[in-house]
Design a binder for these strands. Structure first.
Length: 429
RNA sequence: GACCCCAUCGUCUAGCCUGGCCUAGGACAAGAGCUUUUCAAGCUCUCGACCGGGGUUCGAAUCCCCGUGGGGUCGCCA
C-alpha cells in the first residue's frame, strides 16, 4: 500500500509552492488508492504559530486535498525521537556534545534512485556529522523527518528538489536507525520570475489570496497540476478526476516552472464557464450579500439568469460584482463618460422616448418581445441598430459594455427598464 | 568555493526513455481577422523555441562527452 505525506511546518502560510507539493503527494495517493498523511513539523517552538497552522489546514481543505491520517504533530512525539537517538548513541554511532546528540556520518558515498531524476550520487566526505537532537532537547528536521517517515510507514517521499541535498544526510540517519529508507521523488520547484526560489518578497502568495480574489479551487488545482506535470496530450482544462486518473511520477518534469498568473486567470475563466450556474450562484450569494447587492430574500431564478449572462465576461468570481452590479442597484450612478455619451446626440432623447412608449405597450417582457420592440423603433426612426442600442445600454446600466442589451432588459423587467429610461432622460439635453 | 540538480517559443508544456512520422505540436500572452448591438466568449490565422561545441549514426531535439548558463544545498531553520 502506497503511503505518502505532506509535512508543512506552521512557520508561515501555505503558498503556491507548498500547495503544489501537497497536491502531487495527494494525486499520487489518490491515483494509486494509497494513503495521504498530514504531518505538522512544529519542532521549532519559536517560529511555529497556531494561526499559520489553521491557515494551512483551511487552504488544504479548500483546494480539496483531504488527508486520510493526521494531522500528526511532531511536538507531541519528542519522547520518541529522544529514545531513538539514545539508541543510536548507545550503539556508538553517535556522540554527545553538551546535551546535543550528534551522528557520526560515515565517510562514504551515498546514492539513491530518485523516481523522477534517476540515480543520484554524492561524493564521499561531502557532509559533516549530523545533529540529531539539539541542545534544547528537540530533534533536528532531518532526524524527526526520518523517524516519522519510518514510524508512519511512508513508502514514498515526494518533496521539492531543494531537499535533494538533504537526502544523503537522511540516508545516513536511516542507516543508523537500521531501517530501510523510503523511495524518493524530488519534484521541481516553482520559481519566481527571476528563476530563483519563491519567497514572500518574490511572488509567493498565500493560497488564501487566490480564494479571496475569486479563483475557483478546481482552477487552481488544475493550474498547479500542470506546473511540472502534463497528461501527455494537448488538453489544458481538466477535471480533478481526469487529473487523478492521469497522474504519474513518470510524467513529472525535472525542470523548475514559473507560475504564470495570466494563464491562471484564463484557466479560472474556463472553469467558471464550465461550472454550472447553480454552483456559481451558491458561491456568489455570500459575496453579493456582503456587498449589499442583494438581501436575504433574493430571487434565485433572476440571480441565476444574471450569472449566466455575466459568465463569459468574467475571469474571477469577484468580477461578477463589477460586471453585473447594475442589475441590483436602485439608482444608476452615471459616470462622466456615460453622461457624455448620452449627451452627445440630440436625437437620443427622441429615441429613448419612443422606445419607452414601445416598451410600455408590451405585455410579455421576454428577450424576443423586447428585441422586437427595439427593432420596431429602429425601423420607424430609420436609424442604425447601434444608434438605439448603445445609448439605451448606457441609460440602463451606466456602462458602455456588458451583456447583450435585450437579455439584460428582460432580466431587469419592464417596470425597472422604464424607470431607468425615465431617469436617463434628465441627463439628455 | 564545494557538492548536487536542471536546460524545447516571453511563459506553461508535447516530443526525449524505445533516434527517422519534427521543415518541432498544443496552451497562455501578443498581433490580425471573422462573428456581432457593446464588451466578452467563440472561431480562423500570424508571430515565436530544440543553450553552444564536439562526437556516435545513413539519420539526433532525442544517445555520449565537454563547455556555458541558471538554480539548489552547504544551520543545534524546516
Amino acid at each position: 500500500m502506497i503511503k505518502v505525506r505532506f509535512a508543512p511546518s506552521p512557520t508561515g502560510y501555505l503558498h503556491t509552492g507548498g500547495a503544489r507539493t501537497a497536491l502531487f503527494n495527494w494525486l499520487y495517493a489518490r491515483h494509486n488508492k494509497g494513503i495521504f498523511v498530514l504531518r505538522i513539523e512544529d519542532t521549532d517552538k519559536e517560529r511555529s504559530e497556531k494561526k499559520y497552522l489553521d491557515q494551512i489546514l483551511e487552504d488544504l481543505e479548500w483546494l480539496g486535498l483531504d488527508w486520510d491520517e493526521g494531522p500528526f504533530f511532531q511536538s507531541q512525539r519528542i519522547k520518541n525521537y529522544l529514545e531513538k537517538a539514545q539508541k543510536i548513541l548507545d550503539e556508538g554511532l553517535a556522540y554527545k556534545e553538551g546535551q546535543a546528540i550528534i551522528l557520526r556520518t560515515p565517510q562514504k558515498m551515498f546514492e539513491f534512485t530518485d523516481l523522477i531524476r534517476g540515480q543520484i550520487k554524492f561524493e564521499a566526505g561531502s557532509f559533516k556529522d549530523q545533529v540529531l537532537i539539539k541542545s534544547d532537547g528537540t530533534p533536528t528536521y532531518n532526524f524527526a523527518c526520518c523517524v516519522d517517515d519510518h514510524d508512519m510507514g511512508i513508502t514514498h517521499v515526494i518533496r521539492g528538489d531543494d531537499h535533494i541535498s538533504n537526502t544523503p544526510k537522511q540516508l545516513a540517519i536511516y542507516e543508523a536507525l537500521k531501517v530501510e529508507p523510503p523511495q524518493f521523488a524530488h519534484i521541481p520547484l516553482i520559481v519566481a520570475q527571476d528563476r530563483s526560489r519563491l519567497s514572500k518578497r518574490k511572488g509567493a502568495r498565500p493560497l488564501s489570496d487566490y480564494r479571496e480574489e475569486g479563483y475557483l479551487a478546481d482552477a487552481l488545482f488544475n493550474f498547479l497540476a500542470l506546473l511540472g506535470w502534463s497528461p501527455g496530450d494537448d488538453s489544458q482544462v481538466l477535471s480533478k478526476e481526469a487529473i487523478i486518473s492521469g497522474f504519474s511520477l513518470e510524467r513529472v518534469l525535472k525542470s523548475a516552472a514559473y507560475f504564470d498568473a495570466e494563464k491562471l486567470e484564463w484557466m479560472n475563466a474556463q472553469h467558471i464557464m464550465n461550472a454550472d450556474n447553480k454552483t456559481l450562484v451558491e458561491k456568489l450569494i455570500p459575496m453579493f450579500l456582503e456587498k449589499k447587492l442583494i438581501t436575504k430574500d433574493y430571487d434565485q431564478r433572476k440571480l441565476t439568469r444574471i450569472i449566466e449572462l455575466c459568465k463569459p465576461r468574467v475571469k474571477k468570481l469577484s468580477d461578477f460584482l463589477e460586471v453585473g452590479d447594475f442589475f441590483f442597484v436602485s439608482k444608476i450612478e452615471y459616470s462622466d463618460e456615460a453622461k457624455a455619451f448620452l449627451k452627445k446626440d440630440e436625437k437620443t432623447k427622441k429615441i429613448i422616448q419612443d422606445l419607452s412608449e414601445a416598451l410600455q405597450k408590451l405585455d410579455a417582457f421576454d428577450v424576443e418581445a423586447v428585441e422586437a420592440a427595439c427593432r420596431g423603433v429602429i425601423s420607424d426612426l430609420d436609424i442604425k441598430p447601434g444608434a438605439l442600442i448603445h445609448p439605451t445600454r448606457v441609460a440602463l446600466t451606466g456602462k458602455r459594455a456588458g451583456p447583450g442589451l435585450f437579455e439584460l432588459m428582460s432580466v431587469l423587467g419592464k417596470e425597472e427598464v422604464l424607470k431607468r429610461l425615465q431617469q436617463s432622460l434628465e441627463l439628455i439635453q
